[in-house]
Structures are given as structure tokens and as C-alpha cells.
Design a protein around this nucleic acid. Structure first.
Lengths: 260, 260
DNA sequence: CGCCAGATTGAGGACGCTCAATTCTGGTGG
DNA sequence: CCACCAGAATTGAGCGTCCTCAATCTGGCG
């Protein structure tokens, strides 16, 4: 199993959380070509201002999207784990408004837009699945905004850790322990805090017995407590496959009411 | 011209900023059915937890998407002006993760998902345009996150005002003066501040001679200054139609380099 | 005229920031 | 094996932005 096919397979499983794919759809995805590239610490994966011709699928490590103020302060706007297609949207809107950077290390599969566009022309179901994939990312963004604008430092950190826990769980991790391939500084840039204050928030969380972060790993000691401190409700992550067909089968009562 | 067709026309012109539409595509959009409904102050347009069967197109007024903490604090995550389809994405992902509410007043055209889905099945170009529309909203979200996480109160307010100015300009407003159909409290919930502090930030902005907000209207006195104070770079809004075909015509040099 | 929502202003407090020093860790070369 | 180093984590002290609470003012409306 090559790195490329492993990453594509992870991504396909992500798509299948929200869309039913035929065997042929899966075959199309598995056949997507891609150039593999490795990145070290804080390297540009997709630079600002460029116009891309490839979308980047994370195979290993962690990639972050970010924006920067004029004074240089950085704000992460999304994290991409293995199996996430960081800028699938660039296939339809190739101008780069927000750059992508590796955290500590990452392996990326660059998939040509031409092949992605070709895939969605072959299969309307895939086109739908791709769109949905972008929509889910947007809903995650909404939660991040709530986090940034209206939660205390401790809650922000706790919420982000909960999100990462669930997302790592999907790709084979455990909720009680998962890798955290970035520094407290990265955590700060994701939560709109400073590294110093993230450190203090983590200490508070540790002392409350909810979670422990050491050696690039997160150990969740009390999931219920952590989720409560972070006000975490995972609905927005759409990780429950049983609901993926809601669209094709609207709620009968609701539909009846609407028909009036 | 009915309210419905006026709103659909505004929306079509928004789509055409980023996608080339055929006469037939435009006809499909113009023919979309929709139930018109009026909303007063702070009313639910789309409630949390529901499963929608319609997407809502703003015809008049202002609609906001938001999230809430357990303590009840509210954070707006997007504003929708006339001509914006607030939850186009719900056509492919109908579960409501973040509710929509009118600000002071709004008129909405509810377009059935069935008709939207039918439209995109008839025209791949429309499918592409719809997807792009969602992607642009996501890029706006990125900027809001940067605003929330890393800018001072004054800059946050200035940035938001700049964004609103440009977006109103697109639909027939003037950059130097446009309506602001919401209170300082709404502005606070969009910038992650309190109404008190928004008031003070607005005062500072007024005293600096950049902008004045009175009687539900914004008067921009010095656009360059306001844009500078808000670190506003409008690239992310994708308001320049001349770039809409970038995807079909990738930059030749870049493409050549990539082919290696 | 009273009422109400919103805007405005004041005073005090707290959360998170800045600056800076120290410790810890893993990796590297002598 | 140890010294050394850079990056990261940790802790302390002081400060500032923004919040909280509260009062006053304004304009629209019944």
C-alpha cells in the first residue's frame, strides 16, 4: 500500500461518512494520481497569493490553514489531519486566499485539479460528496468562530482538544489518547491566545483532572469533564454515518408540514 | 418584478462574479420557485436542530448565522445581505448545525431543496457555481476568524464595516454610505466584543475621522483610513468578475512548472 | 405622557497579554 | 559519555484591553 493510496483511502472513508458512494466512485478516487511530498516544521504547503493547480491531501502529520495580521500575528483557521483534503475547494476556486503550512511535519499528496474535476464530471454522486466535504469544513469553521469570540481560554483549549480527539478517533486513534503533532504555540494560534496563556490553561485542565498533554501526546483522563469544560457537542463534525442519507429521505412529518 | 424574482436576480449576479453562466442557466435560476416570508426583529429564520427542506435567499434586510455558548452568549458567524443564499449548503447537508436569525427585519425567499437539486442536475455549470458560492462563504469565515482571534477591538469593527461596505456596494449601495440594519449589540456579537466596547470603538473610529454610524446608516468619511485601521484587503470577497475564469485557464507559466 | 429598546458614558475589576527568566527536552558533535 | 545547543515548556511580575455593572440619555411609539 503506497502512501498515496493509503491517504486516498482515508479520504474516501471520510467522504463516506456523509455520502453514499458506489464501488465505481470508490474506484475513481482510488485511481486519482498524486505527487507525494514531505514537509518539515512550519513550511509552506500552499503559499499565499499563488494560484493552485493541485489540491493537497494530508497523508501524515498535520497541516494548518492560517491568516496573518499586518503585525505578523498568526491565526489558524483550520487543521487538517491525515485523510483530510485541505483545499479541495481550490479545484473550483484556485486563487489562494489563506495559505497552508505544515505544523511540525507532514506528508502531502498533491492531487491535480484536472483529475478531481474529471472525477466529478464522471460521477454526480462524487460531485455531491466533494461539495459536502467542503460544507462540513465550513461548519467546523463556525464552531471555531464561536470558540474564538465567546469562550474563555480554558474552554477554547478544551473544545479544540475534544475536536481533535474525535477526529483522530475516526482515523484509528483512541479518544483517550492521541497524537498532538504541534506545539503549545500552534495551539495558541488556533485558539486566539498566546503560548504563555495556553500553557496556563493546560495546567488548569491538568489540575482539574480532565486531560494531560505531554510528549506530543494528549491523554484524556476524564472525557465527560473535558467535554463539559469545552462545551463540546460533536454534532457539527458529522461523524455519524447513519445520518448521511438525510437529504434523500427528508423527515416525513416536516415534509408534510412544508408542503402546506 | 416580484420580490422573488428580484432576489433571484441579485443572487444570479452574485454567482456570476465567480462563474460564467449560460442564458439557460440564468433562466433556470429565474424560474426557481420560492415562498416569501417576512421576519421582524431577532426571529428564527432557520432553527437549530431542525432538518431543512428549503434554502433561504435574503431578499431584503439582514440575516445572521450564529452559535451560542451554554451561558447564552451569542456569536454571529456570518451575515447575509440581499442576494445572498444563506444556507445554500443545506441543499446537500440539510441538518442545521448553526441557526439563522433575522437582525432587525428581513424578507426571505424559501427555495425548495428539490428545485435546487434539480437545477444542478440539469446544468453542471450551475452545480459548479453553487459549490463556489459556498466556498466563497468559507473564505469569508476565515477572515472573520482572523478578526476574532488576532485583532484589536477597533480593527475588528473597522474590518467588518469595510466588508459590509463592499458587499453593499455590489448590490447597488455606495461605499461612502450604506445601510446598517442592526444594532451595536449585533455588531458586538459579530466581533466577539460587548455592546459597550463596540460603542467605544465606534467613537474612536468617529474621532479619527474614518467613519460615522448614525440612524441605521454608515457614512464612510475616509475609506483609505478605515481600510487601514481594519487591515482590510478585499481579495477574499471575490468581487472582481474578471478573475472568474481562472480555473478553466490556469496560469500558463505556473502550469508549465507544475507539469515537471 | 409613559414606556421601551438602543446608545452612551462612568467606574472598577478581571482575564489574558507582554516581557523576561528559568527549566526541560531531544538532538548533535566532540 | 558528556557538553552543548535550539526549541519548547514553564513560571513570575506587571500591565492593558476589554468586560461587568450601572446610570443616564435619546428617539420612536402607543
Amino acid at each position: 500500500m503506497t502512501i498515496r493510496s493509503a491517504a486516498l483511502s482515508l479520504w474516501a472513508s471520510r467522504l463516506e461518512l456523509r455520502s453514499r458512494l458506489s464501488a465505481q466512485d470508490r474506484a475513481i478516487i482510488a485511481a486519482l494520481p498524486g505527487r507525494v511530498e514531505r514537509f518539515g516544521s512550519s513550511q509552506d504547503v500552499v503559499a499565499l497569493g499563488s494560484r493552485t493547480t493541485h489540491s493537497c491531501l494530508v497523508a501524515e502529520g498535520l497541516v494548518a490553514r492560517f491568516g496573518q495580521t499586518e503585525s505578523g500575528a498568526r491565526q489558524f483557521t483550520a487543521f487538517y489531519l491525515p485523510g483530510d483534503m485541505g483545499d479541495l475547494h481550490s479545484a473550483v476556486l484556485p486563487r489562494v486566499t489563506a495559505p497552508l503550512q505544515s505544523a511540525l511535519h507532514a506528508t502531502i499528496v498533491f492531487v491535480p485539479h484536472a483529475d478531481i474535476l474529471n472525477a466529478l464530471e464522471q460521477s454526480p454522486a462524487l460531485a455531491r460528496a466533494f461539495w459536502r466535504d467542503c460544507v462540513v469544513d465550513a461548519q467546523v469553521s463556525s464552531q471555531w468562530m464561536l470558540n474564538l469570540g465567546r469562550r474563555t481560554a480554558q474552554a477554547r483549549v478544551a473544545h479544540l482538544l475534544c475536536e481533535m480527539a474525535r477526529r483522530y478517533q475516526r482515523i484509528g486513534g483512541s479518544v483517550t489518547g492521541f497524537p498532538l503533532d504541534f506545539t503549545q504555540g500552534h495551539l495558541a494560534d488556533a485558539t486566539g491566545l498566546t503560548n504563555v496563556h495556553v500553557n496556563r490553561s493546560l495546567r488548569t485542565l491538568r489540575e482539574s483532572g480532565a486531560v494531560e498533554v505531554r510528549d506530543r501526546r494528549v491523554s484524556v483522563l476524564d472525557w465527560a469533564l473535558l467535554a463539559q469544560l469545552g462545551e463540546f457537542d460533536e454534532e457539527y463534525l458529522y461523524l455519524r454515518p447513519e445520518e448521511r442519507d438525510g437529504n434523500e429521505n427528508p423527515h416525513p412529518i416536516r415534509a408534510a408540514v412544508d408542503a402546506v
